[in-house]
């Protein structure tokens, strides 16, 4: 069997694909969280960040999106194939089941993964495609001048560069209680999925021994919590009223009014 077909057909090969795509997704989640946390710096910071992401060449933007989609797709596809094979390996289940030591997170990877997938589809429809009925975020309401380094960015004609008000969109989104609740549940499951997945990636790639097993398990748990607290802080801050949609307080509008 050639190495190329082996990676897609053998149990270890498929696991290697899951681990490699897992690394990409784990790093993406960290970057995504770091970007989102700019909301605590202020509306102008997160709006400028969003502007930068969207102003990159369309080809590059879509290449990154396609790459992430392929990674997520492969991760899910391999999980499905491996799960089917594993189900087949035990046609008759035990009458009495017991668990000796396996963590709850490790036993529920498939379920947390399925719910996360449902969340990701909703999340993209909600904030990227903006097609969720009743939450389309009216462009005219949420278009604001771009501010970088505390100054309004002007076009050569002297007109300010306008950008989509991501800050207001996030605040409006999380003010809907069930959106925040679904979001919190999803990032909670993400924390669980990562706490097992993080150390599992290293195990699958063979990068673990007896000493590193303990360290990586702890690192995985810490990473899961870091991601959870980072993401969960935003809807919690919105629900608590710490972050409010108030474009008039933006430096940009104050500057423009002068």
């Amino acid at each position: 069997m050639s190495a190329l077909s082996a990676i897609f057909t053998t149990t270890i090969g498929r696991k290697v694909i899951m681990a490699l795509t897992g690394i990409v997704l784990v790093l993406f989640v960290l970057g995504h969280m770091a970007g989102n946390l700019l909301i605590f710096v202020g509306p102008d910071a997160i709006n400028a960040y969003a502007y930068q992401l969207h102003s990159m060449p369309a080809a590059l933007l879509w290449a990154i999106r396609l790459f992430l989609l392929v990674c997520a797709g492969l991760h899910i596809w391999m999980a499905v194939l491996l799960t089917i094979a594993s189900r087949r390996a035990r046609p008759q289940s035990y009458q009495q089941e017991a668990t000796v030591q396996a963590s709850y997170a490790s036993r529920t990877m498939r379920m947390s993964g399925i719910i996360l997938l449902a969340f990701i589809v909703f999340h993209i429809a909600h904030y990227t495609a903006r097609i969720v009925p009743g939450m389309e975020y009216d462009q005219s309401l949420v278009e604001v001048p771009l501010v970088q380094g505390g100054e309004v960015v002007l076009k050569s004609s002297g007109v300010p560069v306008m950008t989509f008000d991501v800050h207001t969109m996030m605040v409006q989104g999380f003010q809907v209680w069930w959106v925040s609740l679904f979001y919190l549940i999803a990032v909670g499951l993400l924390c669980m999925h990562l706490s097992h997945g993080f150390s599992s990636m290293f195990q699958t790639l063979g990068l673990r021994n007896r000493i590193w097993e303990v360290r990586l398990n702890r690192a995985g748990l810490a990473y899961g919590w870091l991601i959870f607290l980072g993401f969960a802080s935003i809807p919690l801050a919105v629900m608590a009223g710490m972050i409010q949609a108030d474009p008039s307080s933006s430096i940009a509008l104050v500057e423009l009014l002068k």
Partner: peptide, 23 residues
């Protein structure tokens, strides 16, 4: 089936073969 790295194998192994063998 395939390994999901959850370690029940090693926990019941009468000879306590460690998980790092799988790594």
């Amino acid at each position: 089936g395939s390994c999901t790295n959850y370690g029940e194998c090693s926990a019941v192994c009468p000879k306590e073969i460690p998980l790092d063998m799988i790594a």
